[in-house]
Design a protein around this nucleic acid. Structure first.
Length: 623
DNA sequence: GCCTGTGCAT
């Protein structure tokens, strides 16, 4: 018997209620609650509605903690449970692992003709919100709400609005929104969130701008909406506006903004937020720590990511995964694997994303055997089936290592249909290992699969050109034009003094453009003296008529580096973020610059980091 | 008679 109860069983209580109710609050697990339950049966207290409700509520406190079965059993044995008790059960089931059970229980409640009260629908609708698809159920409940007259209650209507907005029924949501007589700030916020999550970001902004009284949730919903729609700059802009208006961000708002920083590589801004958190003594909860780790890692500051990670006592999957992914994109495979082992030892169960991180780490670090072994363990030790992403990682891992046959075999044996990412990994391997035959085949598959993706045409044309099949390369390029696919411009940014400067190839829009080109020519002269000869591997693509000025010596990363040279002191680290992969010529040039000028250059491309020091790159020339 | 609705992570 639990020590908690021992002291209470040795004497006969005078008032069972005075004894049991405070005890319920002291119980720390189901076993103790069961003992109090036993006591309540013995004393007859279980027949009182209030103590019985309290017991149910205690058992339901954490619906995922495993006491729900017992709670349901207790509930079933209560004769004529009141509305409060039904509500308690519905609420717990709604946020449990099987929300549909809440709906079933509600049906029983109807069958037993138990009256609703104003809490019933908000609890019940939470179940719909937590179900991936409960459109019909939601509509039926909507009818009940109207019939029972609860449509006039703002909490109930807002719950309904939230479900429609969250599950993609944005039209129903907006109709409902327009019809609510008692709309309040929650209605507006749910609507903004619904529009944003449904990809209608302009509609969200329109509502947001119309709102007279915004609260922190309105601002956060809008910022998060921008992040989810990959409009990171807009997210940061809105955050700045928030500050101008003296609106204090809370933990959730900051987490959202930090995510935006991570995506664009805005280290200064991210660091500023970290300082702000410390200054304002905002509690660093696990989510905030997790996004800080992610932000620092994605902004190239792996040591700072590690510092936040190490000072976190209670870690969870997300936290560990963020760190593992951080190690991965920095090419530090060994440390990623060690952390994974640590996770297993401490009983933190990895998930899909964790495995993607670990496999990526193995791939980028060339750890083929380790990667294979982890991949096998997904099924064997974790009873999970590898996802398309995991297969993509494996194809990348094998392909990078030059095992093209094995990579192709992997795709052939996949139980799930390979997607563009999987084929893309193989195509990249063909580029790295100069396998033109396979490259040509895979390139065509990819173009069929994703005819709107410019990168695929560019990559295939690049491979063909590198082998000297110029005519074929031009055909591919023309095909892209015929299909009206615009080439996604390569864009590099450098963040200096809290301001992000962006460059595209051949860019002349920067106010200091004259100086930038002058500086670049100086650098180029110096590099040529050191024996640099431009690599023409990717040149073809950029020498077509209208793109003449985008010849490789004007690639965006070079302009960004030149600008970095103008604006930083000699020897200072330069950080560049690029939206595409680095081209091989830029990679050679940057290595040389790092040596000739003794500069550390940290370049984040769309997949990973390249840290250039003294003529070497952390990617070991394989990316 | 105790319990309602909206925003954040890998």
């Amino acid at each position: 018997m639990s020590p908690l109860l021992l002291s209470h069983t040795s004497h006969i209580p005078l008032k069972p209620e005075a004894e049991c109710i405070p005890l319920l609050h002291k119980c720390s697990d189901v076993e103790e609650l069961k003992q109090v339950h036993a006591r309540m049966i013995k004393t007859g207290l279980i027949l009182d509605a209030i103590p019985a409700s309290r017991l149910l509520a205690a058992l339901c406190a954490d619906s995922n903690a495993g006491s729900m079965t017992y709670a349901l059993m207790v509930f079933e044995r209560i004769q004529n449970p009141n509305t409060f008790m039904w509500n308690t059960m519905i609420r717990a089931l709604s946020s449990g692992n099987n929300p549909e059970e809440a709906i079933l229980l509600y049906c029983q409640m109807l069958y037993n003709a138990v009256p609703h009260n104003s809490y019933t629908f908000p609890f019940l609708l939470k179940a719909c919100a937590n179900l991936p698809s409960a459109t019909e159920e939601t509509q039926q409940i909507h009818c009940h709400i109207i019939k029972t007259g609860y449509a006039l209650e703002v909490c109930t209507t807002n719950s309904l609005l939230h479900v429609y907005a969250k599950s993609g029924g944005i039209l129903s949501a907006s109709q409902l929104f327009d019809s609510i007589p008692c709309r309040d700030i929650v209605s507006w916020n749910s609507m903004i969130d619904g529009y944003a999550k449904g990809g209608k970001i302009e509609m969200a902004r329109e509502l947001f701008d119309q709102m007279e009284n915004k609260n922190i949730i309105s601002w956060t919903s809008m910022i998060t909406g921008y992040v989810e729609n990959c409009l990171f700059k807009e997210a940061l802009e809105l955050f700045r506006k928030m500050q101008v208006m003296d609106i204090e961000p809370d933990t959730i708002a900051l987490a959202s903004v930090l995510t935006a920083c991570a995506h664009v590589g805005a280290l200064d801004e991210g660091r500023w937020i970290h300082t702000y958190i410390k200054k304002k003594q905002i509690r660093l909860d696990l989510v905030l720590r997790c996004v800080l780790v992610d932000m620092y890692a994605k902004c190239g500051e792996l040591d700072e990511a590690l510092a936040v990670f190490k000072t976190t006592k209670e870690k969870n999957v997300c936290m560990c995964t963020a760190m593992i992914t951080g190690f991965a994109v920095h090419g530090r495979g060994r440390e990623a694997l060690d952390l994974f082992t640590d996770m297993e030892r401490t009983g933190i169960k990895p998930n899909n994303i964790t495995f993607t991180g670990v496999l990526t780490a193995c791939s980028y670090a060339g750890m083929v055997e380790e990667g294979k072994s982890i991949f096998e363990r997904i099924e064997k030790d974790y009873d999970m089936s590898p996802s398309v992403e995991h297969y993509g990682c494996m194809v990348d891992l094998l392909g990078r290592a030059g095992l093209l046959k094995e990579a192709e075999e992997m795709i052939r044996k996949m139980p799930v249909k390979p997607n563009a990412a999987v084929w893309g990994a193989l195509l990249n391997a063909c580029r790295v290992h100069l396998n033109f035959e396979l490259g040509r085949r895979v390139g065509k598959i990819l173009i069929d699969l994703e005819p709107k993706q410019s990168g695929r045409y560019v990559q295939l044309a690049g491979i063909l050109a590198a082998e000297g099949f110029w005519d074929e390369a031009v055909v591919v390029r023309n095909l892209m034009k015929e299909k009206g696919v615009a080439k996604l411009p390569g864009c590099s940014s450098i963040s200096l003094g809290g301001c992000v400067h962006e460059f595209v190839a051949g860019d002349r829009s920067h106010p200091q453009t004259g100086e930038i080109y002058l500086e670049w020519n100086n650098i180029l002269r110096r590099l040529k003296k050191e024996g640099y000869a431009p690599s023409t591997e990717n040149l073809l693509l950029d020498l077509e008529e209208e793109e003449k000025e985008t010849a490789i010596h004007c690639h965006s990363e070079k302009l960004a580096i030149a600008f970095g040279f103008i604006r930083t002191k000699p020897g200072a680290t330069i950080r560049i973020v690029k939206n595409l992969r680095v081209c091989s010529d830029c990679h050679i040039v940057t290595k040389l610059i790092s040596k000739v000028y003794s500069r550390k250059i940290i370049m984040r491309d769309r997949n990973r980091f390249h840290v250039f020091i003294n003529g070497q790159c952390s990617c070991r020339d394989c990316w």
